[in-house]
């Protein structure tokens, strides 16, 4: 199957600041592609370039078979764009906004009314056709933006943080809709902060300071992490914050994060630990992990912390990305 989106060395500089740094991408038709990354990492800049509203500084990209630098107007005919900020006309009604975009995209007059009805029903906007867009709730605004972006039945849909500030029920509704669209063959390019959303994507990439760090199938990425190292330990203890300090200073600990009442610890590369003085043979991963866990339990006890439970856990996608971001930050500091 042909790729819907291909980027080669895509770069955007604002003055001397690199917002997007030599990004390579290829996204097959019909895929849900999730782009993750912290605020200011270049997600929106990427989307704006791919939508043809921002000229790249270097590199090239093909979207729907058209070059974004040379034929941006052709790109715009085959894509839909739901921007981060609500950008429809607040003083126009739901129907008037849809009519406007229908005309701007040149939706055939014959197909228009039926398509608008379908979209209103599909996006759960029925009964609100005559309400002004500005008076809609956050979730409904988002759905209207989606409806307007779908009015010309684009092959590729870009969504920039479509669920930011939207309640969980509305988020679920939106994602169900996105899955339907993907099944119908639409390619979706979604940026998000939410890891659970990323796990629903068929392909995720993590962008940090404009660099694309990892890219792949989220399930495979998790499996890989599990198979490779399985270095995640959950510790439930009292009190929590002093334990965090102790663990961050501990020899075998790479990273610690708070998860509710528990701490998630990412251990240092375990096979390497057998060269350490405290951990001896045998060196099956599970055995080494068990030894390290006992060491940590001992360290916490010596610090006067009451350890209630300590067990190994599977990493979430969030664990993977947070530790990625940390590793990069640390490298930047050096």
């Amino acid at each position: 199957m042909a790729n819907a989106i291909v980027a080669e060395g895509l770069t955007k500089k604002f003055g001397s600041r690199l917002a997007v740094d030599r990004v390579d991408l290829s996204i097959p038709q019909g895929e849900i592609f999730g782009l993750l990354g912290p605020n200011g990492s270049g997600k929106t800049t990427m989307i704006r370039m791919l939508c043809g509203v921002l000229a790249p500084s270097a590199g090239r990209a093909m979207v729907g078979g058209y070059d974004i630098g040379r034929e941006p107007e052709k790109v715009k005919r085959v894509i839909g764009y739901v921007s981060q900020k609500f950008s429809l006309y607040p003083d126009l009604t739901v129907r008037e906004n849809l009519d406007f975009y229908g005309d701007v995209y040149g939706v055939p007059a014959g197909a228009g009314p039926q398509r608008k009805c379908d979209l209103i029903a599909r996006c759960g906007l029925d009964g609100r056709e005559n309400q002004t867009a500005g008076s809609l709730s956050g979730g409904l605004k988002q759905r209207l933006a989606l409806a307007c972006a779908l009015i010309h039945q684009p092959r590729i849909l870009f969504l920039d943080e479509p669920t930011a500030g939207v309640d969980p029920v509305a988020r679920r509704f939106l994602w169900d809709l996105l899955f339907q669209l993907a099944q119908e063959g639409t390619t979706l390019f979604v940026t998000t902060h939410y890891m659970d959303e990323a796990e629903r994507c068929m392909h995720v990439a993590y962008i940090h300071y404009g660099r694309l760090l990892v890219s792949g199938d989220p399930k495979a990425m998790k499996r890989e992490e599990v198979a490779n190292t399985h270095r995640r330990v959950e510790i439930i203890c009292e009190p929590l914050m002093p334990a965090l300090v102790v663990l961050r200073g501990a020899a075998h600990v790479d990273d610690v994060n708070v998860y509710g009442q528990a701490l998630h610890v990412r251990l240092r590369d375990l096979p390497a630990a057998r060269h350490g003085s405290e951990v001896a043979l045998p060196y099956s991963v599970a055995a080494v992990r068990a030894q390290v866990m006992e060491l940590l339990r001992g360290e916490l006890s010596r610090a006067g912390i009451d350890v209630l439970s300590i067990r190994s856990v599977y990493p979430s996608l969030e664990d993977i990305f947070v530790s990625f971001a940390r590793t990069i930050d640390r490298k930047d500091l050096l």
């Binding site: 107007e73 715009k76 005919r77 006309y89 995209y105 307007c148």
Partner: peptide, 12 residues
């Protein structure tokens, strides 16, 4: 209002 960004993403 940043509505122009949405317009620029269309073939208008």
């Amino acid at each position: 209002q940043q509505t122009i960004e949405q317009l620029w993403a269309t073939p208008i």
